[in-house]
Simulated scan of single mutants.
Amino acid sequence: MANSKRTLFLKRRMRVRSKLRKVNAGRLRLSVHRSNKNISVQLIDDIAGRTVAAASTLEKDLGVVGKKNVEAATKVGTAIAERAKAAGVEEAYFDRGGFLFHGKIKALADAAREGGLKI
């Protein structure tokens, strides 16, 4: 029986996350989630088990509510970089989950890098 899309996605997400944990111990994790209508990102401290900063297209002050294009991803990336600086975070590792690193995910990462976050 062939694997379903969801099963393959979950396997890819766990593979990416486990490899990143081995290499980036002690650093914060910049976790990205993309749904059919929105994109969100969290800066997570895995040791303390808390979210340090977050940004999403659901926030009205970003002006991209309900959009999920490259422009919206760029604004979310810029917002998370600003919020990370305000929280005193300068570097994190980028956890793309099971999503491929191109298009919206790449635009978000590039905007966060341009905003001063080392990922």
Rank of each mutant, 00 (worst) to 15 (best):
K11C: 00
L58H: 10
A72M: 11
L10F: 05
L8F: 09
I44Y: 06
I80F: 10
D45E: 03
A48K: 08
V23I: 15
R34A: 10
V65Y: 13
K67A: 11
K22W: 03
A55V: 01
R12Q: 05
I44H: 04
V70L: 12
V41M: 10
K60P: 12
I44S: 04
R50W: 05
D61F: 04
I47W: 00
V64Q: 02
G77L: 04
L28E: 02
R17G: 01
A25F: 00
T57Q: 13
G103D: 14
M1C: 13
E114W: 06
A48H: 05
L108A: 11
S31E: 11
V52R: 02
V64D: 03
R13H: 13
S56P: 07
S35W: 12
S31Y: 04
G103V: 10
T74N: 06
T74Y: 09
F101Y: 14
I47F: 00
A79E: 12
L58M: 15
G98A: 02
Y93G: 09
N69Q: 08
A86Q: 15
T57W: 12
T51F: 07
D45P: 00
A73I: 08
V70C: 10
A54T: 13
V32W: 02
K19R: 13
E59K: 01
A53F: 12
R27A: 07
G77M: 07
V70I: 14
F101A: 10
L58T: 13
H33W: 15
I47Q: 05
K118H: 10
G116H: 04
R83S: 14
E82I: 09
A53L: 12
N69W: 01
A48D: 03
I80K: 02
G77N: 05
G49K: 00
A92W: 03
G26C: 05
R21D: 00
D110A: 10
V32I: 11
G63S: 10
A53I: 03
R83L: 11
K106M: 12
R113I: 05
D110M: 09
K118S: 07
K67H: 10
A25N: 03
A107Q: 01
V32P: 03
I39Q: 05
V16G: 04
E82H: 04
K22P: 06
V65P: 09
N69P: 03
L20M: 14
G77Y: 02
K19D: 13
V65M: 14
V41L: 10
K11E: 12
A54W: 06
K60Q: 15
L117Q: 01
A25M: 00
V16W: 05
G88K: 10
V64G: 02
V89A: 10
S18E: 14
R113A: 07
A72S: 15
L117D: 01
G26T: 01
T78Q: 13
A112F: 09
E82F: 04
E82Q: 15
L108I: 07
L8I: 13
